[in-house]
Simulated scan of single mutants.
Amino acid sequence: MAIEIRPATDFTDVKALVGPKRPDANVCWCLSYRIPSKQNQQLHGTERGAFVKKLLAEDPPPGILAYDGGEPVGWAAVHPRADTGFATNRRIPHVDGQDVWSIWCIRVRPGHRGNGISHALLAGAVHLARTYGAPAVEGYPVDNAGQKVDLTMAYVGTRKLFEDAGFTKAADTESVLNGFPRVLMRLDLGR
């Protein structure tokens, strides 16, 4: 299997990964950390998809997609932390004043999990951040110590996934997800 990573610019492919089955449903669309909480709560149904379509036209894009034989099979959200909810999140600390990028969602479609796609997505997210001059990249995965993480909560990744990609723990957080503490993992890109 040759996984191809591309910037997320195709609405149909992004919708296949993070959009709802029904257009009027209020699913995340990977907006909950990307935009301010108040704005996120005000967007309903098809407004959410329309907002994502607008984000896909921006430079830099809001994330990356993984493809297997042309089929979209994975998504990772990556963007400058200053443009996300993590800029003001009181539970996730700032390590320093650098203009770091955040990776907050890694999603692989059912039927494609267990094939290393999350590793390819994380590497692709790092590459996108590096391409745009990010001095460092952060993720906020669960520190699950090898225990099973509920699939609906696994979108943040695990500490091991980030360690395997060269990230190191930079700080503890006050955030807990699925009963596991989240840690701030960081990869300095050495501009």
Score class of each variant (00 low, 15 high):
residue 3 I to A: 05
residue 5 I to R: 12
residue 5 I to W: 05
residue 6 R to H: 12
residue 9 T to S: 12
residue 9 T to D: 08
residue 10 D to P: 01
residue 14 V to I: 12
residue 20 P to A: 14
residue 29 W to C: 07
residue 33 Y to L: 01
residue 36 P to T: 01
residue 37 S to W: 11
residue 37 S to C: 09
residue 39 Q to T: 13
residue 40 N to G: 01
residue 41 Q to E: 13
residue 44 H to E: 15
residue 46 T to C: 10
residue 47 E to K: 14
residue 50 A to F: 00
residue 52 V to E: 01
residue 52 V to P: 03
residue 53 K to Q: 15
residue 55 L to S: 02
residue 56 L to I: 02
residue 56 L to F: 02
residue 60 P to M: 11
residue 65 L to I: 14
residue 66 A to Q: 11
residue 68 D to M: 04
residue 70 G to M: 06
residue 72 P to W: 01
residue 72 P to C: 07
residue 73 V to D: 05
residue 74 G to E: 00
residue 76 A to Y: 02
residue 77 A to G: 13
residue 77 A to Q: 04
residue 78 V to E: 03
residue 80 P to R: 08
residue 83 D to M: 10
residue 83 D to C: 11
residue 83 D to A: 13
residue 86 F to V: 08
residue 86 F to R: 03
residue 88 T to E: 11
residue 90 R to W: 10
residue 95 V to T: 10
residue 97 G to C: 03
residue 98 Q to A: 12
residue 100 V to C: 07
residue 100 V to E: 02
residue 101 W to T: 00
residue 103 I to H: 03
residue 103 I to M: 10
residue 106 I to M: 02
residue 106 I to S: 02
residue 108 V to C: 01
residue 108 V to P: 02
residue 109 R to H: 10
residue 109 R to A: 15
residue 111 G to R: 14
residue 111 G to T: 15
residue 112 H to G: 06
residue 112 H to S: 13
residue 113 R to G: 00
residue 114 G to Y: 07
residue 114 G to T: 08
residue 115 N to M: 12
residue 119 H to A: 13
residue 120 A to V: 12
residue 121 L to Q: 09
residue 122 L to G: 03
residue 123 A to E: 11
residue 124 G to M: 12
residue 124 G to S: 13
residue 127 H to S: 13
residue 128 L to C: 03
residue 129 A to V: 08
residue 129 A to R: 05
residue 130 R to D: 12
residue 133 G to H: 12
residue 133 G to R: 11
residue 133 G to S: 14
residue 134 A to C: 05
residue 134 A to D: 00
residue 136 A to Q: 04
residue 147 Q to P: 02
residue 147 Q to F: 06
residue 148 K to S: 07
residue 148 K to I: 06
residue 148 K to N: 05
residue 151 L to I: 11
residue 155 Y to W: 15
residue 157 G to F: 01
residue 161 L to C: 04
residue 171 A to P: 04
residue 171 A to C: 09
residue 173 T to S: 14
residue 175 S to N: 05
residue 175 S to Q: 14
residue 175 S to P: 00
residue 177 L to G: 00
residue 178 N to A: 15
residue 182 R to I: 00
residue 183 V to N: 03
residue 184 L to E: 04
residue 185 M to W: 03
residue 188 D to S: 04
residue 191 R to W: 07
